[in-house]
Design a protein around this nucleic acid. Structure first.
Lengths: 245, 245
DNA sequence: CGATTCAACAATGTATACATAAACGAACCG
DNA sequence: CGGTTCGTTTATGTATACATTGTTGAATCG
């Protein structure tokens, strides 16, 4: 997942920390702990609400407490866990409200990133690479391959963000992306055919290519508002409005 | 600075981590290290570009490396320092571009926060408290008390953000606020009389009170665009476009 | 019977000891 | 004389030992 497609060679590195355990072997223990725990949280292997003591985490990962503690600090800053001093670290549950809050921040940042790209303009090869991704997404839609479509969607959005040239913006988006991930995975199978998103993507892409900042903003805003509302709705159904993801 | 004014009693806690060393005495050492270092960085006592080894930091704070390391991890996540494994911890310089990037993120988030408040509406007491702040700012403008004005400005903005009810949005804004701080302090004496900002604040406030989301957004966007451009311009002069803050 | 206090325990916070690995410099080779 | 390699140095990464402090539960007091 999220492996660079050769066709997007010309685009900048749209590094988005997907849950993965690739090449953890030769990292320092702190990073191993961080990525390993993040992976387990995002994929649900560590369910929301799960509470573990530092000692237990250390045992789980066969490490001493020191690197585990340091990893936990990062996970806490990133919003994935809560640390309560004598009660262990808890995988943060994600309520509907949390999800709404996250989407709100995410959208605001992403729209700004897209605006910046519009203001900057697209190079011909960048435009070509993005257009290929649109075609791939449309093909995935036709093939009813929702999983692949969602991956491409992530990649499309994150590639454009990378083009904004604002690394802090990119970092902030990646952090919030990490928080959304679980919920997105959960509602994936419930999503209807993303025909509407494909259409809106085209519209946004055209505005970007034209370098029209206002149009990019309004189209992207509309896209996010609709898509976010849909996701919230789906999450509501899959949670039965009861509680936690 | 930034101590709650009794007149704003009815507003939610607009907690924004100002540089301060209040009551550090009885905190755990990690937090002492974190706040102490943050304070020194923000106030310039640790100049941008300064590099220190973990051991040196520990000596500086009379602590062992462990809590210092943990504090440094947080400062790094927050974007205030760089850690290069065998070269020590460096206080991040802030170039014009960095500042521009930070303002960009900050504005996008703040505009969204204000929109949420507009959508939610203002309670009468909230409106009254905010209006009092506007009056205080206008008084400070007349008195040419730029320092006080800037504090009130921060407070005005952060209070509204707090009203948005989105804690993650608030946290993200606070983090970026920390990064802006040094540059803002540096250009403070160069700022012209903020009459224009006072006018714009009134406009935004009216739109908020009316619950008009669109109008709030467009006015606030305009306000931020103008103010950010001004700040960048001032920073450019004070740096001579050469380099680092 | 309920509330309160105190003591034992247990988990975290902090310090330190040790392992690892990068940077620097000196010696050696070309 | 310039470049490369190896050893030493030293900062960091990790483990562990120790101190501190909150929690638990049982005993006692009202």
């Amino acid at each position: 997942m999220r492996t660079a497609d050769p066709s997007s060679r010309k685009l900048p590195r749209a590094w988005r920390a997907a849950p993965s355990l690739q090449g953890l072997a030769d990292m320092p223990a702190r990073d191993r702990a961080y990525h390993d725990l993040r992976y387990r949280i995002m994929t649900g292997r560590l369910a929301p609400g799960t509470t573990l003591l530092e000692t237990e985490l250390a045992g789980l990962l066969s490490l001493s407490r020191t690197p585990v503690r340091e990893a936990v600090i990062k996970l806490e800053e990133e919003g994935l866990v809560d640390v309560r001093p004598r009660h262990g670290v808890t995988v943060k549950p994600l309520s509907m409200q949390d999800f709404a809050h996250i989407l709100n921040v995410f959208s605001a940042l992403e729209v700004r990133a897209f605006e910046l790209v519009a203001a900057r303009g697209l190079q011909p090869d960048e435009a070509r690479a993005l257009e290929r991704m649109l075609e791939d997404m449309e093909a995935a839609t036709l093939a009813h391959d929702l999983g692949h479509w969602a991956d491409l969607d992530d990649e499309f959005h994150s590639q454009i963000v990378a083009l904004s040239g604002n690394a802090r913006l990119q970092d902030a988006l990646n952090a919030f992306w990490g928080q959304q991930y679980r919920a997105r995975m959960m509602i994936l199978p419930l999503r209807p055919s993303p025909v509407q998103s494909d259409i809106e993507h085209r519209g946004i892409f055209e505005a970007l290519k034209a370098g029209d900042r206002q149009l990019t903003r309004s189209r992207h805003n509309a896209h996010r508002d609709r898509a976010d509302a849909q996701q919230l709705d789906l999450l509501g159904r899959s949670l039965g409005s009861s509680g936690f993801a």
